[in-house]
Design a protein around this nucleic acid. Structure first.
Lengths: 226, 226
DNA sequence: TCTATACGAAACCAAACAGTTCCGGATATG
DNA sequence: CATATCCGGAACTGTTTGGTTTCGTATAGA
C-alpha cells in the first residue's frame, strides 16, 4: 500500500472525531522511516522469526510502545517495511542504452546495484519462511525486491528485439527473471557471493547464447572455468 | 503421509556384535525413520521456526521424550532429517539416455520427480531462515535437495558434449543449476506452480538455445506453446 | 509559559515452546 | 513368569517473546 500509513490506532482515550490535533505536537510519527529501516536491517540479519520487536526498537532507538502505537503486529510492520523498500527500483528512463544488448546488460551491473542486490537477497532469505504463509507479504516482497530488476531486464530485451538485434521468439519472461533466480539460488542455497563476475558469467554464458548472440569469445576472458 | 515402515534408515536389523544387550528388548530406536519423516513433513508445512517438537512427536505418534532420547535438540533433529532425505537422488546409471539432449532433459521430467521436487522446494523454504546461520544445515540441504538434480543435469550436458551434440564451451555449471534456480524462484517468490509445462518451457526457451541447439519449433509441436 | 501530545524506557502479562522427568505399559528375552 | 529395556503420554520447568501498560520527558503550538 502507500507508505506506512495504515489506519491510525484510535484506541487513545478521548479522541474527538476531528483528526487534526489543535494542541501539542502535530508532527505525526516522525520516527516511522527510522523504524522501517531498522526493521529491514534486523530482518536481513536475523530473519523474520529471529527478529524481535525489541531488536527493531533498539536499532531505531525507539521504544516498543512506539512500534505498537503504529503497527498492530510484528507481521504488519514487516509487510510495511518491505513494501516501503522501493529504492533501487530502476527507472524506465534511467536504464542504460548502449546500443547493444550486452552493453546494456553489463551496464546494469554497477557496484552499487550488486551490493544493494545482495542486501535484498538477504532480506528475501529472512522472509522466506514467512513468505509462503502470507500472500500479502509475498506480493510485497515480489514487488519491492525482484520485480524492479526483472522488469528492467524485460525492457532491455524488448529494446533489443525492437532494434532487430535478437529474435522476437526469445523467451523474454524467463530470461528477464534468470539473473534474479540464479542470484537467489547462489546466495541462499550455494552460499556463495554474488559479484560482478557472476553476473557477467551469466550474461555471456547463458543469456546471450540463448538469444542467439552466441558467445562473445573475443570480447572477454573465459568465464566457464571449471 | 501414513508411513508404514519407511525404508529410510536400516539401522535396526543387524545389530553390531558389541552392543548386544543381554536382556530386555534389543530393538534400537525403531521409530527413528518415522520421526525423521514426520520432521520433514512438519518442516515442509510450517517451516523451521514454526515447527515444534510436539508437532513432530504427534505426527510420528511418538512422545517428545523419544525425540530427545535420540537427538539432543531440535536443530540436530532437523539436520539429521534433511541429511537422511536421500531419496529422489538420481542414480548415475538410471539417468535417461535417449540420444539427444532434449530427449534426456525432457525424460527427467517425470510426474513423480516434479511432485517430489515441489516438496523439496517447500522443505528448502522452511529451512531458509535457519540455513544462513547453520553452515552444517546448509551443506546438508544442498547435498540432499538440490545437488542430486544439478549433478544429474551436469551429466546429461556432459554426455551431450561428449557425443558432439553441443559445444564444449557451454557453461555447464550454470546450465545445470538453471532449472533448480528458476523452480525455486517460481515456487517461493512468484508462488506459481512448478509443473511439466514450466520445465519444458525452460528447456526449449533457454537451455537448448543457450547450448546452440536453437529453438526446436519444428521438432516438437505444442510444447513451447504457452 | 502552559498544555496536550508523542516519545523512550522499563515494567509487566500471558502464551508458547524447548527441554526434562516420571510413570504405566508393551515386549522381547531368559 | 521374571526382568530389563524401550516406548508413549502427560505433567512440569524455565525462558523467550509478542503485546500492553505506565510513567517521566521533550517538544511544538497556543
Amino acid at each position: 500500500m502507500t507508505l506506512g500509513t495504515s489506519q491510525l490506532d484510535t484506541s487513545q482515550p478521548g479522541r474527538g472525531p476531528d483528526a487534526s490535533p489543535k494542541l501539542g505536537r502535530k508532527r505525526d510519527h516522525t520516527r516511522d522511516p527510522d523504524i522501517l529501516e531498522a526493521a529491514l536491517e534486523v530482518l536481513a540479519e536475523t530473519g523474520y522469526d529471529g527478529m524481535t520487536m525489541e531488536m527493531v526498537a533498539a536499532r531505531a532507538k525507539a521504544g516498543k510502545a512506539t512500534l505498537y502505537r503504529r503497527w498492530p503486529s510484528k507481521g504488519e510492520l514487516v509487510i510495511d517495511a518491505v513494501a516501503c523498500m522501493k529504492r533501487g527500483g530502476f527507472d524506465r528512463d534511467h536504464l542504460p542504452d548502449t546500443g547493444t544488448l550486452r552493453g546494456d546488460l553489463v551496464a546494469m551491473i554497477k557496484p552499487h546495484a550488486v551490493e544493494d542486490g545482495a542486501r535484498k537477497m538477504r532480506i528475501m532469505a529472512g522472509l522466506m519462511s514467512m513468505i509462503s504463509r502470507t500472500p500479502e507479504l509475498a506480493e510485497a516482497a515480489r514487488a519491492a525486491i525482484v520485480e524492479p530488476r526483472a522488469s528492467a531486464n524485460r525492457i532491455l530485451l524488448q529494446r533489443a528485439i525492437d532494434r532487430g538485434e535478437i529474435s522476437a521468439d526469445c523467451d523474454i519472461d524467463n530470461l528477464a527473471m534468470l539473473s534474479q533466480s540464479m542470484a537467489i539460488y547462489r546466495v541462499l542455497v550455494l552460499q556463495k557471493p554474488v559479484n560482478r563476475e557472476f553476473f557477467i558469467g551469466l550474461i555471456d554464458g547463458i543469456v546471450l547464447p540463448a538469444v542467439g548472440l552466441g558467445r562473445p569469445q573475443a570480447q572477454r576472458d573465459g568465464n566457464t572455468a571449471r
